[in-house]
């Protein structure tokens, strides 16, 4: 028995229905990713202290901390500024901005433009674990092969608070640890 064109119509309708359901499911997943990010959106600022031996010896342990986390498509942009103080006076200021996009894993985000772990751009990703958002940056020096791995753990505390724990590992050894407390502005 050969199938005539009209007899294919129910099959086509079924395929269309499945496609619509799949698309709706995909949208729902994308939506849930944005949901997990929502509590972190906002502007936070505060102070921190570095406790590695070297920075304490140099008198560079005080930090002013500021971070803005905003939606960007289905992902987010994290913009943070750190001011290093010595005896109350600002001696160094650095700002970093990274945009993250969703991955297949609902709580993992890949950085846009930082996707060459052994290249100039380095490699960055972010992960959410409950109330904690961690941003990682891996940089491998092309001249020497040595690496720096930075992690910024930002944990929401109550309705308006955030705690930061920054760790820098250089070639397997922890180099700088900063712990700070921030408030939502």
């Amino acid at each position: 028995m050969s199938l005539s064109y009209p007899s294919l119509r129910p099959v086509g309708a079924l395929a269309l229905g499945v496609a619509v359901l799949l698309a709706a499911n995909l949208l729902a997943v994308t939506g849930s990713q944005a949901e997990s990010l929502k509590p972190f959106f906002g502007h936070f600022s505060g102070e921190g202290v570095a406790n590695s031996e070297q920075v304490v010896e140099l008198g560079l342990k005080e930090r002013d901390l500021d971070v803005v986390i905003e939606p960007a498509g289905d992902g987010m942009t994290v913009n943070w500024t750190t001011v290093v103080r010595r005896d109350g006076e600002a001696v160094k200021r650095s700002t970093t901005t990274i945009e993250f996009k969703p991955t297949d894993d609902p709580n993992v985000f890949k950085a846009v433009g930082r996707d060459e772990p052994l290249g100039i751009s380095g490699y960055s990703w972010a992960a959410i674990d409950g109330h904690k958002l961690t941003v990682y940056i891996l940089a491998v020096d092309a001249r020497t092969g040595s690496y720096n791995l930075h992690s910024y753990e930002r944990t929401l505390k109550g309705a308006t608070g955030m705690e930061l724990k920054f760790l820098r590992i250089k070639n397997g050894k922890p180099k700088v640890i900063v712990q700070g407390t921030l408030k939502r502005k």
């Binding site: 772990p117 990703w125 972010a126 891996l138 491998v140 020497t144 092969g145 040595s146 690496y147 070639n171």
Partner: peptide, 20 residues
């Protein structure tokens, strides 16, 4: 990746799991 520093050859292997 690997690096040579003086007389040491270091091989690094990094993996990121599903939870980041």
């Amino acid at each position: 990746w690997a690096r040579i520093n003086k007389r040491t050859l270091t091989v690094y292997i990094m993996t990121i799991s599903g939870n980041g």
